[in-house]
């Protein structure tokens, strides 16, 4: 294997230094002095002038005209009722170094969120009677605004891209499908030239049934649930999914995935 004999010595921002110091102490690598004559160390933070300057040449991550596939898991941070977790697969075609388009399929986990489960146990309100999201299919566009690299331990370098994402598609509830839009930002960390960890923070917007429906959610486990007029105390008749009102709903999602670039 080719040994690395060339290093880059750079003046870096204090914040990066601080982060590096913290990491170096936390991973406990022995310190070593590298003697480079002072007159060879860069004195300025300006860039050299070229006729047609570009930021990077011979880039490690060649994601222009490339396909990448990946799997991911997600968490709906602002979902109060339905199960907040999901899993999915993503497929992307990178048109060039800046733009990519792809397809995302995400399957929601069934059941209730922890909060909704607690409400059920404590108050006998069963939000499982309300329609829940099943899966979503999205056409995803990414604008890769930044390509850079990180060196946390000086032993290696990780490339990274930061991008904005715009997606549109359908979300399927147990009874009905709704059109959906999503905007977000994401970042990929390339451990190798192909394998990357992907993080996405997306805001979804779509029509969705309102799960809070009076006289429909008491499951009979708590006699005190609900008001009068119930044939069985604390038990509402099971409502049909179509009886729930709908409104525009926003959900913030955090997704983590592993992608492989071909």
């Amino acid at each position: 294997m080719q040994k690395t004999e060339v290093f880059v010595v750079k003046k870096v921002l204090k914040i990066v230094l601080a982060a590096s110091l913290f990491l170096s102490s936390s991973i406990g690598i022995a310190e070593e002095n590298i003697d480079v004559p002072k007159d060879e160390l860069v004195q300025e933070t300006v860039y050299p002038v070229f006729d047609n300057p570009v930021s990077v040449k011979n880039r490690n991550v060649q994601d222009s005209h490339a396909i990448d596939v990946g799997i991911f898991g997600g968490l709906a941070l602002t979902e109060p009722i339905s199960n907040t977790t999901k899993m999915g697969v993503a497929f992307n075609y990178h048109l060039n170094y800046t733009h990519s388009v792809g397809l995302v399929w995400a399957k929601n986990s069934s059941g209730l969120s922890k909060d909704a489960q607690g409400i059920k146990e404590q108050f006998g309100l069963d939000y499982g009677r309300a329609p829940a999201p099943d899966y979503a299919v999205l056409v995803d566009y990414n604008y890769k605004a930044y390509y850079g690299k990180l060196s946390l331990t000086s032993n290696g370098v990780i490339n990274t891209t930061i991008y904005g994402s715009f997606a549109g598609g359908m979300i399927k509830y147990v009874h009905k499908s709704y059109p959906m839009l999503a905007v977000g930002i994401g970042e990929r960390f390339y451990f190798t030239k192909s394998l990357s960890l992907k993080m996405d923070l997306r805001l979804y917007a779509h029509q969705a049934p309102i799960p809070f429906k009076a006289g429909a959610l008491c499951d009979g486990s708590k006699a005190t649930c609900g008001g009068g007029g119930q044939t069985t105390p604390g038990r509402d008749p099971v409502p049909s999914y179509d009886s729930f009102e709908e409104r525009l709903t926003y959900t913030t999602n955090l997704e983590f995935g592993m992608n492989y670039l071909f």
Binding site: F7, K10, V12, S24, A30, S151, T153, S154, G156, V157
Partner: peptide, 16 residues
């Protein structure tokens, strides 16, 4: 390891 001195940091060259 890296030894930070006077605001300098180093990392290996990896072809980019």
């Amino acid at each position: 390891a890296f030894y930070i001195k006077n605001g300098y940091e180093y990392y290996p060259f990896q072809g980019e």
